[in-house]
Write a protein that binds this DNA or RNA. Structure first.
Length: 573
DNA sequence: GCCGTTTTCGGCCCGACTGTTTTCAGTCG
């Protein structure tokens, strides 16, 4: 039985939950959570690292003890300390921690005084009016718990970045128009460009916060005010999206923006650095004793702790602080670096626009080239092209290229990778193309080893250039198919194949961690929009954002190259 | 439980809001 990184992370997180209930040392609890995150973020399989004899205690936040526990989990599939804790507490108790307003202390009070062991027990106790009788509780708290249970449940809901963006932009504009508001920025994971956003963290600067807060909580989209004070408020919008608004004076803008952008793990690590220098960082500034040293800009804050500016996309405590100290931060790729798009559809398969419309839209974005990649025949539902139709399209492209000015259409195809690992079109036509973009569109449920071998076999075809949406995930809808990504990346490197960052807002595939893994292995990437309409070409910003989160520089991304150099880079080994 | 350009022991980020409390604990981000 293979132990996945997610399994180990989940065991450590559950251990942390139970330790919280037990009232254990908070720093010990934090150590388990930190280790869980480190393992979850790890691009390689921890199980394979253990088996190869690697020293996991080299990883951040993992010492000898946890390295030993990881090795044990890999060998036995079990975590003894977790097993021990699970015997001490009823199985449903940790779920109560996910109810808003309930933390470890209150959960334990409910458990010990009323024998509440799970959500159902909790509901019954509320209905019976028992909770209000407990010391430290009240009727008000009882109703709050009930309300949280009914409106938010126990599952954290995350929104695709682009969905959050649809709310964030107009809300920020609305806030800007309030009298006295100077600056408005949407910070948090939205600013870090995470693929999904749990809530919106909006920062405003103004001389006096409370009038702004008062206006904010009366916004027509606000369904519920969760909390409201003089400098911050938390509301739930009708859409279910939570918005935290924080108001600070303009002089604290940089410090507050930095604090509110996070990530939490990044902030905690940088604040610890500050402590070592005898400084304190909070949302109002950087302080030495009572003396304020910085806070107007983020750059000032970084400077005080001896660091260069770190881009928001990197602030995940995944090594960026160490890189900043060492002066080895990457120069992240930007949208302006992009010279073309290598994955786009037309009406010939399932796109909405013609060749010439797509070409015009790409030229309007300042691109030098656009690869036309309609589907291949196997994808009948998308009206995929067979050899004959593709040949005809190639002729159309040649004719169009003769007429086009300022942009070149590349002859390509999104070729299905068949279950056997064969490509869906014969070499006789593939060799006519400028490049082949290849992808999996069916049989998602193969075991990891077979799915991996299927793709590697496809890469063995000398005309294979780019592996498109490599994991097949649809954010919030479909899990990635089981895959041994390390083997895929290695195979791509050996064969001179590239991997795609698909910029569709519901794909963003590869994700940030796999981007970094590919980069570290020396595999080049293509950031492609998979546009099915002219407007989709603009999704490039989302793909670039994932690339940036994956530490990619322009030199790692093949479609930052001019056309001639691109053709060279596409040549197989 | 981790970690070390103060430390192998003794620290571990920091503040806002809520509710029940007359000074703070619990929760959250």
């Amino acid at each position: 039985m293979a132990v996945h990184n997610a399994d180990i992370a989940s065991m450590f997180n559950r251990t942390a939950d139970l330790l919280e209930l037990q009232g254990a040392n908070p720093f010990r609890i934090r150590a388990y959570r930190r280790a869980a995150r480190t393992i979850a973020d790890l691009p390689q399989s921890a199980a394979r690292l253990v088996k190869s004899g690697a020293d996991l205690s080299e990883l951040p936040g993992i010492g000898d003890d946890l390295a030993g526990k990881i090795a044990g989990i890999v060998k036995t599939g079990r975590c003894p300390i977790l097993g021990q804790l699970e015997k001490e507490f009823p199985a449903g108790l940790t779920e109560l921690l996910n109810v808003g307003g309930l933390g470890p202390k209150r959960v334990m009070a409910l458990h010990q005084s009323l024998g509440i062991d799970n959500i159902d027990d909790l509901r019954r106790a509320i209905r019976a009016g028992k909770i209000r009788t407990l010391k430290g509780f009240s009727e008000k708290i009882e109703q709050k718990i009930l309300h949280a249970l009914e409106t938010r449940g126990t599952q954290e809901k995350r929104f695709k970045w682009i969905v959050a963006d649809e709310t964030a932009r107009p809300l920020a504009a609305w806030l800007s128009a309030i009298e006295g508001v100077k600056k408005v920025v949407v910070a948090g994971s939205y600013r870090r460009m995470k693929d999904t956003v749990g809530d919106l963290d909006i920062l405003v600067t103004c001389a006096k916060g409370s009038p702004v807060i008062d206006r904010f909580v009366k916004h027509e989209e606000v369904a519920e005010i969760v909390s409201r004070g003089a400098t911050r408020a938390t509301v739930l919008l009708r859409s279910g999206l939570q918005v935290d608004l924080r108001a600070v004076p303009d002089i604290s803008y940089g410090a507050a923006l930095y604090y509110f952008t996070g990530s939490k793990a990044h902030n905690v690590a940088v604040r610890a650095l500050a402590v070592k220098r005898g400084l304190k960082i909070n949302e109002y500034g950087v302080f030495k004793g009572d003396k304020r040293l910085a806070g107007r800009t983020e750059e000032e804050v970084f400077r005080q702790v001896g660091l260069p500016y770190i881009e928001p996309e990197l602030r995940e405590n995944r090594g960026e602080i160490e890189a900043a100290r060492a002066g080895t931060l990457p120069r992240l790729v930007t949208v302006e670096d992009m010279r073309g798009d290598l994955h786009a559809h037309t009406k010939a398969s399932d796109g909405r626009n013609s060749l010439s419309e797509m070409a015009a839209a790409a030229r309007a974005l300042g691109y030098e080239y656009l690869a036309i990649t309609d589907h291949s025949r196997h994808l009948t539902i998308a009206n995929g092209l067979d050899e004959k139709r593709l040949r005809k399209q190639c002729e159309d492209i040649d004719r169009l290229n003769d007429k086009l000015k300022g942009i070149t259409l590349l002859k390509s195809c999104e070729v299905d990778i068949l279950e056997s690992g064969k490509l869906d079109l014969p070499d006789s036509i593939l060799k006519e193309l400028d490049l082949a973009v290849c992808s999996v569109h069916y049989k998602f449920d193969l075991p990891a080893a077979r799915q991996t071998e299927r793709i590697i076999r496809a890469m063995d075809n000398p005309y294979f250039n780019i592996l498109a949406h490599p994991t097949g995930r649809l954010i919030g809808e479909r899990e990635p198919y089981a895959l041994e990504m390390e083997r895929i990346v290695r195979a791509a490197k050996e064969r001179g194949c590239l991997m795609e960052i698909n910029a569709q807002p519901d794909r963003l595939d590869l994700n940030d961690i796999h981007c970094r893994m590919a980069k570290d292995a020396g595999v080049k990437l293509a950031i492609s929009t998979d546009a099915h309409a002219t407007g989709h070409l603009r999704y490039m910003t989302l793909g670039v954002a994932q690339a940036r989160r994956g530490w990619l520089e322009a030199k790692d991304v093949v479609n930052t190259l001019a056309l001639k150099a691109l053709r060279q880079a596409l040549k197989r080994k």
